[in-house]
Amino acid sequence: MLPDATAIDKALAAIGSAEVATTTLGLEVRVEADELVAALEALKSGEHDFPMLVDLFGIDTGEAVDIVYHVRSLSRDEDVYVKCALSYEGELTSVWNLYPAALLPERETAELFGLTLAGHPNPKRLLTTDGIEPLLLKSVPIRTVEEVRDR
């Protein structure tokens, strides 16, 4: 469940910006966006094999979009949450060649948070049609009661 924080810290020694912390969620690693791929590579390969991407999603924190990569080691049953902050309308670098499971969630996240997708083999819109705003951003409101009532 909860991996050894020092071991993860050691595995990510080459990543300068990596900060390992234990929170209510579990073990979180925060990295800068430009070192994200390297951090995931270090976690996936080597003795700390985390071969499975459980989930990938974004959180609009008010200042930036946090992208959460939830990776899991099946042999030891441990989870690590790698987080990296992207600016609004920033660029989400695809990690599909590390984790093919990211293919659809990346498209979904980029679309619903208004990010551009780099390095993705099929960077089309996934869920909505053209012209629809990035709906999961906090700045995009839902319909008001009046709008719904006077439909």
Binding site: L104, N122, R125, L126, L127, T128, L135, I142
Partner: peptide
């Protein structure tokens, strides 16, 4: 190619409200 989104109805967004 898989095309989805024909039932996208905002469960995650509405969960925030």
């Amino acid at each position: 190619e898989i095309v989805i989104g024909y039932l996208h109805r905002g469960i995650e967004k509405l969960g925030e409200h």
